[in-house]
Structures are given as structure tokens and as C-alpha cells.
């Protein structure tokens, strides 16, 4: 008889794999991808494909050249590519999108050891790099989605520019806001995957139902921004109306549901997650109200990413029956 396999228990495993989790995230992002394509035109779809392809290629080449195990099967590069694309204006030149993908995968993820070891969210960090690099050109060129909605045309960079709702909400700004219904459906100026709150919330519900994420981070993050906004509604808005505009604007939904919940760069325990999300909410609010940028979701998540090791240290679980340490 052949030798038997020896291993430490358990001898059965659940079917869940890293690739399976990532596939769930991809599925959860599909509604937003469809919404982005409907709202901003076919270029949104192609831009997403470009980001996904360049993220996967960057990961493959890095690992291949350094003779590391190939990990593109785990689909994490696909998630990064989709999230990066969703955080870009539809008119951004493709070469900039590719540059962002390379930054996300090589600089933020692989140089720190690959999946599980990066301290900051790759898509968020790459978005910020692009945002700062191309601040006054492609990264702030918002087209008017009422002109592209349902047209399925190629979104054109020459199209009339439009202000994002957040810019309009900024004190001292003129311009008009879309209706709240349009905000929910995403017919507003912004990045391709961030505007349709409805699609993002659908994806979020799917992720919570599949137990991929817990509700703590999205709910606390959004609720913090909502409650703080209630307190500072400027003249001309009711508190409720203003706070609702705030949570439906900009990258809050995609940030709270898909970016701040990234396992690697968020705390482990529920308490840690709540503290993390509170921090994200407060910083987002502060930047939106008092900062020089209209939007603060990316910065808030990146900043809180850096605090995760400390939050983890301060918020361990309480072992059942564990004696107090001397």
C-alpha cells in the first residue's frame, strides 16, 4: 500500500477561496459598470477594460520577471483595475489610465510584497497620484452626463464641461444641483463608477449578503458624513436635503462600500472597523467643508489606511475566559 498523507487537522476545508471572494467583488461592481456605461457612454466600458487589462499585465510581468509565483488567477488585479477605472473621469487619456494601473499594481502593491502586504489601497493611491499629477487637466474634466446618458456614444473630451455636485455644494459656488433622483441614479458629473449610488448600494447589499464584507465600515462611514453634514447645512438648503446631497455626491458610496472595506487595508475586528470608518467619515467631511479640494473620500481612506496597524493594535477581540495580562 502506498504511504498515507500526513497533515495537521482539519482534514476538510470550506469551498471559499481568495479568488471566489474577488469574484464576488467583481460581480458586485457589475451594476456600477453598467450604470457608468449607460451614463457616460461606451468609453467608460473601454476605459475599465484598459485598466483591468493593464493591472493584470503589470501583475503578471512583475511576478514573471522576478520569478515569483503567478497570482493573477486570484482576480485581485481585476478588482484593482475596475476600482481604479471607476475612480477616473471618462475622458481621461488611456495612457494616463495605464500609468495609474502600473502605479497601483507595481508601486503600491507588489513593491510592498504583493497581495496582503500592501499598507495602502492600490486603486485609491493610484487615483490620488493621477489626481495630483493631472489636477487641472484630465483628472478634473467632468462632462455633462445629461448629454451622454443613454447615447452609447464615445464620450468625447471636447464635450461641454460640467461641475460635479460637490463643487456646487462648496460654499460660495454658483451653479445648480441635479435633482436628488438624478443623484441616486448617477446622472451627474463625476467619475465613471462613482455617480450611480443605487448601483453601488446594490453591490454593497450583495457583498454583505454574501458575507464578503460586514456592514460596519460602509454604514458608519456614510452615517458619519450624513450626521456631520446635518449640522452645517448652509443657507438655502434644509439640513436633510443638504446631508442627503452630501452622501450621494462624489466618491462616498464607492469609497465606503468598495474601497474602505478592502480587507488588507482595513482593521480586523468590528470595533476597529467602526473606528476606522468614523475616521474616514470625519476626514471626508472636513476636507469637503474646509479643504481646498471639493472631495476628500480618497484622502480620508488613504490616511486611515496608514492608521490601520495602530487601530488593530488597540482593538483586539476579548478571548473567552482570558485572564487579564499582568
Amino acid at each position: 500500500m502506498s504511504k498515507l498523507t500526513l497533515s495537521v487537522s482539519p482534514h476538510i476545508r470550506s469551498r471559499l477561496t481568495t479568488g471566489g471572494i474577488m469574484l464576488d467583488v467583481v460581480i458586485a461592481l457589475i451594476p456600477a459598470l453598467i450604470a457608468g456605461t449607460v451614463i457616460f457612454g461606451l468609453r467608460a466600458l473601454v476605459l475599465t477594460a484598459v485598466c483591468v487589462a493593464s493591472c493584470m499585465l503589470a501583475e503578471f510581468l512583475f511576478e514573471f520577471i522576478l520569478k515569483k509565483p503567478l497570482t493573477i488567477n486570484d482576480l485581485s488585479a481585476v478588482v484593482t483595475g475596475m476600482l481604479l477605472a471607476f475612480n477616473l473621469p471618462v475622458t481621461i487619456p488611456f495612457w494616463q489610465a495605464v500609468l495609474g494601473s502600473v502605479i497601483a499594481i507595481i508601486v503600491v502593491k507588489q513593491l510592498f510584497g504583493g497581495l496582503g502586504l500592501n499598507f495602502a489601497n492600490p486603486a485609491i493611491t493610484a487615483r490620488i497620484v493621477l489626481f495630483i499629477s493631472f489636477a487641472n487637466t484630465s483628472m478634473t474634466h467632468w462632462i455633462d452626463p445629461t448629454r451622454t446618458f443613454m447615447s452609447f456614444n464615445w464620450a468625447n473630451a471636447d464635450m461641454a464641461a460640467s461641475a460635479t455636485p460637490l463643487a456646487v455644494l462648496k460654499p460660495g459656488s454658483t451653479g445648480s444641483l441635479p435633482s436628488l433622483m438624478n443623484m441616486l441614479l448617477g446622472i451627474e458629473g463625476g467619475c465613471i463608477g462613482e455617480t450611480c449610488a443605487l448601483a453601488l448600494i446594490l453591490g454593497g447589499i450583495y457583498l454583505v449578503a454574501r458575507k464578503v464584507i460586514s456592514f460596519h465600515i460602509p454604514v458608519v462611514f456614510v452615517a458619519t458624513v450624513f450626521v456631520l453634514s446635518l449640522l452645517v447645512a448652509p443657507e438655502g438648503y434644509s439640513s436633510l436635503e443638504y446631508a442627503t446631497y452630501q452622501i450621494l455626491s462624489g466618491g462616498l458610496m464607492i469609497g465606503a462600500i468598495f474601497m474602505a472595506t478592502d480587507y488588507v487595508t482595513s482593521p480586523t475586528t468590528s470595533l476597529g472597523k467602526i473606528i476606522f470608518a468614523l475616521g474616514c467619515g470625519v476626514i471626508t467631511f472636513a476636507i469637503r467643508i474646509w479643504g481646498s479640494y471639493p472631495e476628500g473620500v480618497s484622502f480620508s481612506i488613504l490616511f486611515m489606511n496608514l492608521l490601520v496597524p495602530f487601530i488593530n493594535k488597540l482593538t483586539p477581540t476579548k478571548p473567552l475566559g482570558g485572564a487579564k495580562a499582568e
Binding site: 498523507t5 476545508r13 481568495t18 471572494i21 497570482t71 485581485s76 496582503g116 480587507y263 480586523t268
Partner: peptide, 13 residues
């Protein structure tokens, strides 16, 4: 009896 192949921890908790 196939032993599972470990992949990197993604800190999913």
C-alpha cells in the same frame, strides 16, 4: 486527501 495550497493571507478576518 489533496493538501490545500496556501496563498497569501488577505487579512479578511
Amino acid at each position: 486527501s489533496v493538501l490545500p495550497e496556501p496563498t497569501p493571507c488577505i487579512r479578511c478576518g
